[in-house]
Design a protein around this nucleic acid. Structure first.
Lengths: 317, 317
DNA sequence: GGATTGTTTTTTATTGATAAAAACTTTGTT
DNA sequence: AACAAAGTTTTTATCAATAAAAAACAATCC
């Protein structure tokens, strides 16, 4: 049976939406709601009737009184397939899963409280991140977030980013991307000013920035690769909060230099700034994860656990 | 219920194995068979008892008479999950599926004669090849093997191959890879001599060659990317047999030049040979597929179907 | 006549059940 | 003891069933 997370999420959103409606605005039509809530009209109707059932009855069939209708808990609004990701990560983090550990579908299913099919689906999608490997008829093996994983990741990242940055610098002055770049620069300076309170917002800005650069010469394989980076960083830093503010502040400044370099359109300057930023990002990742290294044992083929238990999943995108 | 393709494949293999046993050799133990047939001992026992049941009864409990025990049909020995790949490809080829077509799990399941779960699993794995896209709660879309797909693919391929070829050229003279390279060169010359009869053998040689080069500086992301190339070429050329012999002959000669360049260890010569080979491979692919282009309509975002119906799946590795 | 609401059909997400295959444990044999 | 065979338990692959969500169709309404 399908979970009704879609309904619950949209229900909560609908309450917000209706609550914030200007007093004079007409009540939105089902179609409009369907667009705004990003669900089918079928679901909109379900929401509407749920709302009507809970608001004061027979209030003249006009706009229902939303008042104090309770929302669904956050957790209930996340579809199972996405929860698996989180669970899986926790399994690795908390249980300190080591490279070489074999993954048991049934066990995970029981632990996560869902059917094996869900696990299977997740693992199949997650496979592409290069952290697990399939053994037909014999489950999966966790390969681990080892130092070599990180090194290999960064090697490719550097190749791709350099290629895209240079392509960006060559963009004609008329390209719309220049404006977007300037907008992003402004967001960076702004974030820098409020860094003390908003430093968490960096990770989103970071991935938007790198995606913008990639869009100068779009290539689906590069974009796919960036999903891996995004995932790794997301979970890695979620696990390791040390020096977050400081770390992000440095990165923002590097981005600003990098952006200026792009705006200068001078290839060698761009290359310099880009290389500098990536080197620093790599250093940060390797350093922050290797501190814990000594605690962990090593698996056969993994001679270099870096963030042994660390980092992981997400195959949702 | 699991299919028993593993058993059937191993059963057939076992008959061959036992049939070819030297007369004096002792009958292999269950454990030995398990290793040789690459299945668990559980399956070996099942095979053994199946064989005993069919061979002349009570022949003194020693070596059973294999004689004329019938084998299982080839088709039965392929696990369902692998069949899906083939089916899916045929669906695209035969039905001339166009970019933008939406993929319906239920429909495919019915057509392929299996449960939707199998389709789902396949699609999830196949996703990474960049030819389909998921729409949560609303199925999948076939993005098509368009010209831009091919161009993007080759852009990355060139970047990766160049990087690996240069790394290879820098390998110390003591590296074992030089010998392997020489061995591969010999296989190339040999194949060239027998090209008229053995030209199909090229595709295997090709992928072994490129994998060898990559192994100079191993990187899992590059290896993963090569799976995509292998897949595309496999199916693309399986579908398009035009000029196969001629095409392969040219490629072999290019490989030989490329190999000599590597052996020379001169980076600029390597780069030249590598670029030349890739350019020619790209040209071949684009040319052979674009011939049919005119037949096909174009989908929204795909302004350039190349081998519209062509090319595809395989998420088995 | 184009948007709105009401109704029916199709498709996706998720579960639980089960045979095949693998992994583990015990027993037997030299 | 050391390996082979027999027996048991666990795990994977696969199916069929079903509620939720989407899509398609039909009836209304300014």
């Amino acid at each position: 049976m399908k979970s009704d997370a879609v309904f619950k999420r949209a229900f909560n959103d609908a309450l917000d939406l209706i609550g914030n409606l200007p007093v004079e605005a007409p009540f939105p039509s089902e179609n409009q709601l369907s667009v705004q809530l990003m669900v089918s009209r079928t679901t909109v109707r379900k929401i509407l009737s749920a709302i009507r059932a809970q608001s004061l009855p027979a209030a003249g069939d006009s706009r229902p009184l939303i008042g104090a209708i309770p929302r669904f808990a956050e957790a209930e609004t996340i579809p199972i397939s996405e929860q698996v990701e989180k669970h899986f990560m926790e399994w690795m983090l908390r249980d300190n899963t080591r490279p070489g550990t074999s993954i048991n579908e049934l066990q995970l299913a029981r632990r996560f409280g869902l059917a094996t099919t869900g696990i299977r689906e997740f693992l199949n999608r997650f496979q592409r991140f290069g952290l697990i490997e399939r053994r037909p008829n014999a489950g999966w093996v966790f390969k681990g977030f080892t130092a070599s994983f990180a090194l290999e990741l960064f090697e490719i990242r550097e190749i791709f980013e350099l290629r895209s940055a240079l392509a960006f610098a060559m963009l004609p002055a008329t390209s719309a991307l220049w404006q977007k770049l300037e907008a992003l620069r402004d967001q960076h300076t702004q974030l820098l000013e409020e860094i003390d309170t908003r430093y968490h917002d960096f990770s989103d800005l970071d991935s938007r920035f790198h995606r913008l650069i990639n869009s100068a010469a779009p290539n689906r394989f590069i974009e796919d690769f960036f999903d891996i980076i995004t995932l790794i960083f997301h979970y890695h830093y979620q696990w390791n909060k040390r020096d977050e503010r400081q770390r992000n502040e440095v990165a923002i400044k590097e981005h600003l230099t990098y952006i200026e370099a792009l705006l200068s359109r001078n290839p060698s300057i761009v290359e310099l700034a880009c290389r500098a930023h990536l080197a620093s990002a790599k250093e940060t990742l390797m350093r922050s994860s290797s501190r814990k290294t000594s605690e962990f044992a090593r698996a056969d083929d993994a001679k270099d656990p870096v963030t042994p238990s660390a980092a992981m999943p997400s195959a949702s995108s």
